[in-house]
């Protein structure tokens, strides 16, 4: 049986997905990046391998996320795609006529507008990470509430307080102020959810025509409080896909499937890579005053990837 591997290496999580030939999800893993992408990618492949039937052949691999190049050279990806395309592809696999995709991940949030299955517009947060997963994580641990209960608490509030949501630092001091005034925790959390949604729609969603069906994905979609705040602010229902946290990886696998259908072969190095020694090194290039920080990734003793330079001096000629 043929299957396709998708890996999404994000700031907070690494997702590894296997799709079967029809595009259905066979396995899907959500692992924390913990600042060690290489080890977690290998761990993810190891766990995935354990879940697969023996006769499964991986016929294509796609990578996405901010670590897509790293993952791409490690596994030998057929396609290395940006997160926006990957998320849009995954969303239209589930709802072919989806017109709006809201995606909030660990450190970035984006909105993708589709019409008739084609991405027509998108935006990504630029100067501010307020309202992304990392901030919610941080607030949950400050309030000593497990992150998976954070959103549910918001639903219990009847009189949300108004929280300044433009900037994480101000949002936090505003929340502390409200808490010292004696407001209930659930009211503050609901206020925070509303503030973050407001911030998202004003900054990321600015000027975009949000039409149904609307899909909400990314790690933050687990938060029912944020979801409710979105439905309230937009005045329309929001759909959350079953695999909302790993949609990027699903999209990458699907793109690999399309790519392999064109090229007829895969560059996947095989699951053996989960046992290979990888290490990275870095140095400052002194070729010009830019002093680029060059990062190299080694497989054993061989350099397989190098990036960080502004010119092409350190590019590696692909060994096909």
């Amino acid at each position: 049986m043929k299957a396709y591997l998708g890996i999404d290496v994000g700031s907070v999580s690494i997702n590894v997905v296997i799709l079967d030939e029809t595009g259905a999800v066979l396995t899907g893993l959500y692992l924390r990046t913990q600042g060690r992408p290489i080890e977690v990618i290998q761990e993810g492949l190891k766990q995935t391998a354990g879940l697969l039937p023996a006769d499964l052949e991986i016929a294509g691999v796609g990578t996405t996320g901010s670590g897509r190049y790293l993952a791409g050279v490690m596994v030998g990806a057929d396609v290395i795609k940006n997160e926006i395309t990957a998320h849009a592809v995954a969303a239209s696999m589930l709802i072919p006529d989806v017109q709006t995709v809201l995606e909030i991940g660990g450190q970035d949030s984006k909105i993708i507008i589709l019409r008739e299955g084609i991405v027509t517009d998108f935006a990504m947060n630029t100067v501010c990470a307020a309202g992304t997963g990392s901030f919610l994580d941080q607030q949950a641990s400050r309030l000593n509430i497990p992150i998976d209960q954070f959103g549910a608490l918001a639903l219990r509030s009847e009189t949300p307080v108004r929280v300044a949501g433009r900037c994480t630092v101000f949002a936090e001091s505003d929340m502390i102020h409200k808490q010292q005034m004696g407001h209930k925790v659930e009211d503050i959390i609901k206020g925070l959810c509303q503030a973050l949604v407001r911030n998202y729609l004003n900054n990321v969603g600015k000027g975009k025509e949000i039409l149904p069906p609307v899909m909400f994905q990314g790690g933050v979609a687990a938060n029912v409080g944020i979801r409710a705040a979105f439905e309230e602010a937009l005045g329309m229902p929001i759909q959350i896909p079953e695999h909302f946290g790993i949609m990027g990886a699903i999209g990458a696998a699907q793109l690999a499937r399309e790519e392999v259908a064109l090229t007829g072969k895969t560059r996947f190095k095989g699951l053996k890579i989960m046992g290979l020694p990888y290490r990275t090194g870095n140095f400052d290039c002194d070729g010009c005053p830019n002093v680029c920080e060059i990062v190299e990734i080694y497989e054993g003793e061989k350099v397989i990837g190098r990036w960080g330079s502004r010119c092409n001096k350190w590019d590696i000629v692909e060994n096909s």
């Binding site: 795609k81 997160e83 926006i84 395309t85 084609i118 991405v119 517009d121 998108f122 990504m124 630029t126």
Partner: peptide
């Protein structure tokens, strides 16, 4: 540059598909 490249790639994908 990384953030810019991500947006450029996505933009080019958008234009190609369109």
């Amino acid at each position: 540059k990384a953030g810019m490249n991500t947006r450029l790639e996505a933009f080019v994908d958008l234009l190609k598909r369109k």
